[in-house]
Write a protein that binds this DNA or RNA. Structure first.
Length: 682
RNA sequence: UGGCUUAUGGUGUAACUGGCAACACGUCUGAUUUUGGUUCAGAAGAGUCCAGGUUCGAGCCCUGGUAAGCCAACCA
């Protein structure tokens, strides 16, 4: 009722269908169920945005539930970080829940299962149980403890709980089906003995429930209507349902599990285990290292919540595994920051520039627009003097006229300041440029309104005034991996693809003094360079900026790119047919396009289409056409088009050959009248 | 030698119960621009994994293949 036909993803469709079938909207309830054993990453953002997005859309509660059933791996630190990240993304959960809150209930239900003969205690070794479990292709067999008496099981389970047994010695298993084609149904473990303090329940328990036993029952306890998880849990659904069957009260809501594909991002990895390995191996500095695809890493890198939510929207939800290109993420953050980031100037690779006709020692305050995208953003002061830094790559002694920057004898504008002209250079003994000498058109000051100030020049450069500039550290990041899908190689470990140059620290960057006032987390556009944010490592005497993302750079694309930094994915091969020259392809392509729908046409339209094909056919070579003889019988239109084209070619003098004869013969034998006619005409 | 899932431009997603394959990113033109940014206008690029079938008509339905992912943790 709310939306206007915006297409639904398959999860939304399921919910819409449920609603249409009479499911009460006020019973809709979702949950986001992280295990507190690591930090959230951009893949989790997909799930967060899905669940909380559904909650917002349907005005339904969304619980945050920590799936904390394994005290060996879980910690309070992660709980806090997860809560922080979700709130930062802008979502608010209805209730903060913990699976551990349900330990008693789960235990009671387990007792019930034992009493009903549906669960038993097994004291075999893990190896023995694995052995009996079989393999995906061979069924399992019953172990020796499978048919113990209910009394014995009750006794053993009570003693497990009482701590009488060593960790790893006994487990409680559901008694389901050792021959099931689904390995998860071969008597899965419900409880194991773990003698470790839990972050919430302390030492109350020494037996802990397994995921499968816990998850569905927790959903049931919380009355979650749609339990959404990633595809690798698809097989667990059968178990999820089996467990629910055992305890389910038909008068209240029964949760349903649905699975969607997890989101992968190109040039990074997306599993907590691998992310943890990057941290432990010191490949990155921490979970919130700006190169990490974690929410905290992206935040520190300068990403905004809006950009990440938008990215989730644009990426969509589906059931096929895929790798989303980082360029989409970068697009999202550029789009957001372009609207909001204050424009400033900073020079990362400085070379000195002296304006010889500017009074030495003079300083003047210019005005610099805060954001041209936002007329209400105002302006700030910008000091100017005769000694400046500009970007080293913005100057060449000589260059062709595609270089819109400073050269000797050419004019460029200094952003928000004067138009200058390159006059000469000073070099050191090694031939490196140490100083560029320029003259300025002193009438051309920006905003002065003079005719000179509005002159068009070839380019505009950013700069900082040397006596006023503040020195800062700037950290530039490149993709963490050199391979698009680093963890998709069965023969190679993802760590082999780590990009050794993913971090570039620039100690001596110079920034305009306005930036002295910046607070941590503030976001700026360093004009012509990119978006930057003040890192938490900053101190009052040393500012540290992270480069969030560069501006789109169509200049860099034209260059052969001597820097291996900029990384274009391999260009696609536009030619599919097999080596025809580009120019000729279009005519045949046109013909194919027209032919495709040929059989749907009639009358004048048909005649027109035929004429178009015949006209285009003149430009087609036989070599191009021949592959089309293989066209499937089904694609009659294409075969007719090919036949018409062939007719034109034959008229032009193309000699008949066995392939042509076979194609014509097939045409004559076809059921389609048009095709037969065309074939006869030849 | 099994089971489950998926298959649409370079990438990610659409296409309501069959009706001339759409959107976004990316790529390429051109215009505008005191950011080689933004904005604007436009272009190229897919016969929907393959082979059959049903139908006036199939990406959607049927049959048979192929490929990829997941499944044998006292992890979640």
């Amino acid at each position: 009722m709310t939306e206007e036909s915006a297409s639904l993803n398959f999860i939304e469709q399921i919910i819409a269908d449920d609603l249409a079938e009479g499911f009460s909207p006020d019973k809709l309830r979702f949950r986001f169920p992280p295990e507190p054993n690591g930090y959230l990453h951009i893949g989790h953002a997909a799930s967060i945005c899905l669940n909380f997005g559904l909650g917002e859309k349907h005005n339904a509660p969304v619980n945050l539930r920590f799936d904390d059933t394994n005290p060996a791996k879980e910690e309070q630190e992660y709980v806090d970080a997860i809560k922080n990240d979700i709130q930062w993304l802008g979502f608010q959960w209805a209730t903060e829940c913990y699976s551990s809150d349900y330990f008693q209930q789960l235990y009671d239900w387990a007792i019930q299962l034992i009493k009903e003969g549906k669960a038993y205690v097994d004291g075999q070794s893990a190896e023995a149980m694995a052995e009996q479990k079989g393999t995906p292709t061979t069924p399992g067999v019953a172990g020796p403890n499978r048919d113990k008496s209910m009394e014995e099981n009750l006794d053993l389970f009570a003693r497990m709980k009482a701590g009488e047994f060593e960790q790893g010695s006994y487990v409680l298993r559901a008694k389901i089906d050792m021959a099931s084609p689904n390995m998860l149904m071969r008597d899965p473990i419900l409880y194991r003995v773990v003698k470790k303090a839990h972050h919430r329940t302390g030492n109350d328990w020494c037996i802990y429930p397994m995921y499968d036993w816990t998850h569905g029952e927790s959903d049931y306890i919380e009355q979650i209507s749609h339990s959404l998880c990633t595809l690798e849990f698809k097989m667990h659904r059968e178990l999820y349902d089996w467990f629910l069957d055992q305890i389910y009260d038909p008068t209240i809501l029964r949760p349903k599990q649905r699975e969607f594909a997890r989101r992968n991002l190109s040039y990074t990895v997306m599993s907590k285990r691998k992310l943890l390995e990057l941290v432990h191996s010191k490949t990155v500095a921490s979970w919130d290292d700006p190169r990490m695809p974690t929410i905290s890493g992206l935040r520190r890198r300068g990403y905004t919540p809006e950009s990440i939510r938008n990215f989730s929207d644009l990426s969509g939800i589906s059931k096929r595994d895929s790798v989303t290109d980082v360029s989409l993420l970068e697009y999202c953050i550029r789009e957001d920051l372009n609207k909001s980031a204050t424009r400033v100037m900073g020079v990362l690779d400085p070379v000195k520039l002296v304006i010889t006709n500017y009074p030495s020692g003079k300083t003047e305050m210019l005005e610099s627009e805060n954001n041209p995208e936002d007329p209400n953003s105002g302006a700030h002061e910008l000091p100017f003097s005769g000694e400046l830094y500009i970007e080293r790559e913005d100057f060449k002694e000589e260059a062709d006229n595609k270089f819109f920057r400073l050269t000797l004898g050419n004019e460029v504008r200094l952003k928000s300041a004067y138009i200058i002209k390159g006059e000469s250079v000073v070099k050191d003994a090694a031939g490196n440029i140490t100083e560029i000498l320029c003259t300025a058109d002193l009438d051309s000051r920006s905003g002065s309104g003079t005719e000179a100030s509005t002159r068009k020049v070839k380019g505009t450069l950013h700069w900082v005034s040397i006596p006023h500039a503040i020195k800062a550290e700037v950290r530039e990041y490149d993709r963490l991996f050199l391979e698009e899908a680093p963890d998709s190689h069965e023969d190679k470990n993802f760590m082999e693809f780590v990009n050794p140059n993913s971090l570039k620290v620039i100690k001596g960057a110079y920034l305009e003094p306005f930036l002295k006032e910046a607070s941590k987390g503030d976001k700026f556009q360093f004009q012509r360079l990119g978006y930057f944010t003040l890192d938490k490592d900053s101190t009052t005497d040393k500012l540290v900026f992270n480069k969030t993302v560069g501006l789109r750079d169509s200049w860099a694309k034209q260059n052969p790119a001597p820097a291996p930094q900029s990384n274009q994915p391999k260009q696609q091969q536009p030619n599919q047919g097999g080596g025809q020259p580009q120019g000729q392809r279009s005519a045949l392509n046109e013909i194919q396009k027209i032919s495709k729908k040929y059989t749907n046409l009639s009358g004048d339209k048909l005649a027109a289409a035929r004429a178009d094909i015949a006209k285009l056919a003149v430009e087609v070579s036989y070599e191009e056409l021949e592959p089309l003889f293989q066209t499937a019988t089904k694609k009659v239109g294409t075969r007719i088009g090919a036949m018409i084209t062939l007719g034109v070619l034959l008229d032009k003098g193309q000699k008949r050959n066995p392939e042509i004869e076979a194609f014509i013969a097939a045409g004559l034998a076809d059921e389609n009248e048009e095709l037969v006619n065309e074939s006869k005409g030849i």
